[in-house]
């Protein structure tokens, strides 16, 4: 294994970005899935399309939109700049890019989990004196836990591989915003670095396998506890 200090930073940065993006998206993903499954809304189709759009749009396009929005002249970027926050070309921009790209995957999984909950269970909890938010936290949340775990793993994995949107909003600065895929991209453009690229690829494989194993383990644990 050949890993330069910059590669090690890239690995840590990748993990940090993926984890932050997933944790940040979880409450929003849960809320969005809940809205889509349990609420009758006007304009639900619009919400549905918006949530799923990042799944079908090329990541580069998303990155470009984010750049327009968060950049110096973007309306959100301007407002943030006034409060002294700069997002573009920092690791935080990579988090936002990963969050947007992975969001539909998270929502889809949580939604599947929620759709499998019998509506009569929720009705029963309401007639037993639980308000809607009580029911949300004591019935819906625990019963969609499997979907939440699946969605989080998927999103974490997707974030690890995020390239297109990230390179546009966060750039490719070794040691600062360079994640594993960006580092590998750099290595592949110089013919002498095949071994270096391969090392990072191996690291990617190890992390991915670990995520899948963790997902399986958590899933089984949940199955066991719900069957006891």
């Amino acid at each position: 294994m050949l890993l330069t200090p910059e590669d090690i930073t890239a690995i840590w940065l990748s993990l940090k970005v993926a984890l932050t993006a997933t944790l940040l998206s979880l409450p929003f993903g849960f809320a969005t899935a809940w809205l889509l499954v349990f609420k009758t809304l006007r304009g639900k189709v619009v919400l549905e399309v918006l949530v799923n759009l990042p799944l079908t749009l090329p990541p580069v396009v998303i990155g470009y939109f984010l750049l327009l929005l968060l950049g110096k002249n973007g309306w959100l970027g301007k407002a943030l700049a006034e409060t002294g926050i700069q997002l573009i070309f920092t690791w935080k921009a990579a988090v936002i890019a990963s969050a947007v790209v992975g969001f539909p995957l998270l929502v889809r999984s949580i939604r599947l989990g929620m759709e499998s909950i019998d509506k009569q269970l929720i009705a029963a909890s309401r007639t037993l004196g639980a308000s809607w938010y009580d029911s949300l936290f004591t019935i819906i949340l625990p019963l969609s836990l499997r979907g939440i775990v699946a969605g989080s793993s998927l999103m974490f994995a997707r974030s690890l591989g995020e390239f297109g949107a990230t390179i546009i909003v966060a750039g490719n600065m070794p040691g600062r915003t360079q994640t594993i895929p960006l580092a590998i991209y750099d290595y592949t453009s110089s013919p002498s670095s095949t071994a270096m690229a391969l090392s990072l690829c191996m690291v990617s494989v190890v992390i991915s396998v670990a995520v899948l194993l963790l997902h399986e383990m958590l899933g089984r644990k949940l199955d066991r506890s719900s069957a006891s």
Partner: peptide
């Protein structure tokens, strides 16, 4: 009045016990 404030409980055809 919302269901939780009505104090009217139901027993359905299926027991609908909370599985968790």
């Amino acid at each position: 009045i919302s269901p939780e404030k009505r104090r009217i409980a139901i027993v359905l055809q299926q027991a609908m016990l909370f599985p968790h």
